[in-house]
Each structure stands twice: as C-alpha cells, then as structure tokens.
Design a protein around this nucleic acid. Sequence first.
DNA 1: TTTGCAATAT
DNA 2: TATATTGCAA
Length: 514
Amino acid sequence: MVGKWYPVTHADDEGGGPDRDLPNSPNMFSDNFPKGLRVLLFDEDRQYLHILEKHLQEFDYEVTTCHEEERVMYLLCNHRDLFDIAIMEAHNLDGKIFHLISEIGSEIDIPIIITSQDDSRESVTKWMRNGACDYLIKPIRPEDLRLIFKYLVKKMEPRSVTVAEEAEDKAAAEKSSSVGDSTIRSPNRRKRNMLQTDEEDRDHNRDSATKKRRVVWDDYLNGKFLEAVHFLGKNDAVPKKILERMNVSSLTRENVASHLQKFRMGQKKKKNDQNKSDERNRSLITPQERGMSGGERSNEFYRGINVQSPSHHVNNIPQQSCFQQHNTDLNLMAQRVSSPPGDHYDRLSVASSSRNLSTTHQHHTSHQISELPFNDQNIEERSVYNEDEDDGFRNLITNWFTQIPDQINLFPLEESVIATTMRFNDIQELANQQQPMYLREPSMVHIPSIPSSLTHNPFLDQKENIQLVDLHRQQLLFREQQQANLANENRFPETNPGSGSARRDKMGQDRDQA
DNA sequence: TTTGCAATAT
DNA sequence: TATATTGCAA
C-alpha cells in the first residue's frame, strides 16, 4: 500500500481525482494522495495568507484559512480532527500559540508546520523541540508547500517508508526554505542535523506523534511549577504532587523531577551566597549572638538579627535591576516608617534585602503584607495579602515592580505570621516616648539566613531575607535582643520589648482611645 | 513505588 | 547550557 504513493515516484504525479477519506482511514493513502489534504493555514497577514492559500490550492490541497490567533487556537484545540496538517505563523516564542503547542503538543496528532520571518536559531530550535514538525522561513517557496504531505507519510507508515522518506527528505532539503538549509546554512545536509543525530532523527520521525518531547521550561511552565511548589509547601513539593498541581498533560513526573532537581540546586547556590554575605555582616552581630549561632538549631534563628541597624532594611537596595527606578519610592516609604504619615495608611513599613522588598501595611483593623522576591533578570513577585477589596495598595506595589498586575499572586495571609519592620528610628522613638511596648502590633523582623523550618514558606528562606514572625516568637526574639544589647554597650538601652514599650503610631492610639 | 541525588548523556 | 536518563540508596 505504501509503495503506491512512494513519495519520490509519486511526488510529481498530480493526476487522479480528489476523492479522499478521513485522515485516519485506510484510504488515506490512496493513489491520489496527497490530494485533498486538509490544511489548516494560519497567518495574521491576510494578504500573505491568501498567497499561501492559492499555492496550496494549486497543489490540490483543501485549505482552511484563518487570520485570528484565537480562532486558530480554538480550531486546534477542538477541531483538529478536521485537518490533516496545520501551517501556522509564529509570532514569537512567548505567544499563546507556542504555549498551547508546547503544552498540548503531544496530544495534537497532526503535524504542525511553523512559518516565520524569524530565522534565528533559537526560534527554530525552540519550535522544533516543542512540537513543530518543520519550520519554514518566510518567504516560503511554493515547493515547500507542496511537500508538506511528507509529514503525513512519516506519521502514517513509519517503518516501511524510512528509505523512501530519507531519499525524499534529502531531495527536499536541497531546494527548500525549511530550516535545514535556510536557517542553518548547510544546504547539502538533511535538516535537523543540527538538532539531532541521524539515528535519533529516524527515531523521532518514527513516532513523532507520540514520542515525548524535550520540555522547555519557559516562563509560563516555570511559573506554574513555582506556583505549585509554593502551594504545596516544603513537605509536599515532590515531583508527583507538583505534576498533579501543575496539571499540564504533556509533562511527566520525570520532567518535573528533573526540573525540581535543578530548582533545588539553584536554591542551594543562592543560600550559599547568602551565607557568605551573612558572614560579611557578622560585625553587626553581638558577641553573644555569635556565640550561640553554632549550628542549625533553634538558636540559629536569631543569628544575625538586624534590629540594631535597621536602616539596612531600606538602604541595602541594589542599584541595579528593577529596584533602581523605584528607589525614590522606597525612600519615601522609609520615611513613612520613621514618621508615620497621616495619610491613608496607618502604618507602612518596608524591609528590603539584596533581593527583596517586604512591606507591611496596616490599615485600620486589617493587615496586608506584600513580599516581593527578586532575581536579577526578572520579577518573580509574590504578595501576601489579606485585605478585603483594597486593590489600591496592591496596585501600588504592583506598579513599582511590574507593569503586569496579573503577575502578582495573592495569597491569603495566615494570621500568626504578621510582621512589620522595626527601624532604628522607630526604636529610638519608642525609647524617647517611653511608651509601653505591647507587641500586639504586627511586626516584621529582618533576619538574614533563616532556617527553613521557621519560615512559613518552604522556599522563602533561601530566596529572601525576610522572616515573618509571630508574636510569641518575637517576644523571645526581643529577649535575646535585650541580652545582646546589654552585652553590646547598651546600644538600645531603653528598648525593653519583652515587657512592652511598643511603638504605637498616633492614629493607632487614637483608634484605641475611640 | 516514590523520592532525592549525583553522574552522565544528549 | 538545559534537560533527560540512569542507577542507587533510602
């Protein structure tokens, strides 16, 4: 049966009627093949779309055109049984179509040919690895359109056509604008040689429809991964559960395990770096503290408590990355911390480290905490948020760091981990005012190198310098602080947090009186 | 069976 | 470099 339409001998045979059956029916490979091949053609450029359509029709293909991304995605998702093959324009690697195909690509059982003006190796590689069976660089030669049936040949009758396919492939490669000779300039070699060895290539072709593809952990997938990891928490963030949570059908447990392994290694590295920088900050730590920070025990928790030099919170903002443009805002916030303004917010506190900014916003009876962990290149932000409908603050934070509010995830705030920043000025203020310090107010303490067991998020400690503490813990903390102070020439003689002297801003007091 | 990890392959 | 695979121990 296969021999009847052996590609090399029949490729030029344009005769015969266009009667054909459904793609998977045995008559798919009739003498007329590939006539009547049902092609889904997508290109946002209507003019170009029309040109391609004309060419395809010349080869007796049955063309369905589409110039809307949403529409073609819909067709691909819900009606791909109406087509034998799809030719789709690629805009960029971050587009919806790429996500769609890389996600459900293994479920799409029709060959997908990508067309693009982008002849970059990165683009070609990424597409080819993520579900495209070929990549045609514009302008596309009609001949390449004529030969699209070859992917169905391979798919339907893999073993018996290997030789033919190779011959045909070679022939096609010599005069095509597909990746083999256009993007990767090796005109006499078969395409994909740059991507895979010949042996694998054959393998790949044999069951390209079913074989698992190499996963590209792009921002989208990685985002899902991170979300799952955060959601599951320290103890449950294992491959199987992450996979379930991500709910991406094309992924395997092994994929996730591999990525998780890499993810953890990255964290380990960050943690090491952090420890190094902590080491450098040792001078800020009292001898007592240094003495009790031997191992990873509970005492370790207090190592490096930085209440003594609270300006660190706002001054240690890196001068690069996205922080820079927001430094002004941060300084404003810092001022607010030291002198609570009479504006909308009762109190607004900021803590930041080399990679993070944390803010606590206390507004009347509710609390918001926003955490914004950063890496150098990008924004990987997270917000903890516990306010009814006050999107104002969220937007404020959002606008500082990203123009994309949707990227901020909101998590319900667990009550016992409310925190606030204590700045140097705050403490002095307290001392001068000699007010009792009731630690009922939410507080945040900046603690470098926190054991993960004490963070509410399993990965927080390795990414961030911010610790959220509950009140009980904070009392302990201040007791330690008190001891430290005594041993440290009474740097904060009047601060006696264990017994009280809380910083209460004016509005807070007014509220209490009312 | 699943997981974590390291080494190794692609 | 990023991801996959493998083998091993828990």
